[in-house]
Computed example of a mutant assay.
Amino acid sequence: MKNIGLYFGTFNPIHVGHLIIANHMVEYSDLDEIWMVVTPHNPFKKKSSLLDNHHRLEMVYKATQAYEKIIPSDIEFNLPQPNYTINTLVHLSEKFPKHQFNLIMGEDNLKSLHKWKNYEAILEDYQVYVYPRISEGNTITALINHPKIQKVDAPIIQVSSTMIRNAVKEGKNVGPLLANEVWQYIDEMNFYKK
């Protein structure tokens, strides 16, 4: 049975911080693979600067091609919208019964996990791997000590997709913050420049 970590995100764009966390999780935990689950655009929300699903998925493919244990996933693209994490977890567990799925999240998301739809079911059936983030507020003590929550001592990354989009808009060189193929794609497609 493969032990799979699910790393959800809009990846708008995917950057070195995402890759560092994913690689650290797969190399320094008991996870066999990390699936980078590209979250689709919510049709009920204003689009703002969110690129179309296929462009963000393409960037994840480009960023992860050198990492055999980090796999791009478009599994949520065909699920009913708006979607919830519990639905994706159940769907994947039914589709791949020989895999054990686990949730990866930043410490900032753990602080609001108790507000997620069916969060009790997530904690009942799935392990949650938490990487450190610098953020405001406190995590509920019951969640910190929950047996299904495992904190991983990963590097703290202070790079964000928002920061990258803003820097591109300002004409700054963000090459070092992205996989080379992703930076080339963004540049060729003129993404985030307006």
Results as ranks from 00 to 15, higher is better:
176 P>L: 04
45 K>R: 15
72 P>R: 12
10 T>Y: 05
18 H>N: 01
49 S>E: 14
35 W>T: 00
26 V>L: 07
148 K>N: 15
6 L>F: 01
8 F>P: 02
15 H>M: 05
171 G>P: 07
55 H>E: 11
105 M>T: 01
185 Y>Q: 00
62 K>R: 15
19 L>M: 11
139 T>C: 15
177 L>A: 14
1 M>I: 11
6 L>C: 03
194 K>S: 03
22 A>W: 06
157 I>Y: 04
60 V>F: 07
24 H>F: 15
132 P>D: 07
55 H>K: 13
45 K>M: 09
161 S>C: 13
21 I>V: 15
173 N>G: 06
82 P>Q: 13
184 Q>F: 14
36 M>P: 07
17 G>W: 11
139 T>M: 10
61 Y>P: 06
138 N>L: 09
48 S>E: 14
134 I>S: 11
181 E>W: 01
141 T>F: 02
101 F>E: 07
138 N>P: 09
93 S>P: 13
187 D>W: 05
60 V>T: 14
128 V>L: 04
93 S>M: 13
140 I>H: 14
79 L>T: 10
47 K>C: 06
13 P>N: 04
37 V>Q: 04
92 L>G: 01
127 Q>S: 05
15 H>K: 07
37 V>P: 08
65 Q>H: 07
173 N>A: 06
120 E>C: 06
10 T>E: 00
80 P>H: 11
153 D>S: 09
137 G>V: 14
174 V>T: 09
194 K>R: 08
152 V>Y: 03
46 K>S: 06
172 K>Q: 15
103 L>Y: 03
62 K>W: 00
90 V>P: 00
92 L>D: 00
89 L>K: 07
16 V>K: 09
112 S>A: 13
87 N>W: 11
5 G>M: 12
107 E>T: 15
113 L>W: 00
109 N>W: 06
32 D>H: 08
135 S>M: 11
56 R>G: 00
144 I>P: 01
55 H>Y: 06
39 T>D: 11
35 W>R: 07
65 Q>E: 03
178 L>D: 07
155 P>H: 03
45 K>I: 10
45 K>E: 09
46 K>R: 12
3 N>V: 02
29 S>L: 01
121 A>T: 08
41 H>N: 14
79 L>W: 10
21 I>M: 06
46 K>Y: 05
39 T>F: 15
142 A>K: 14
140 I>Q: 14
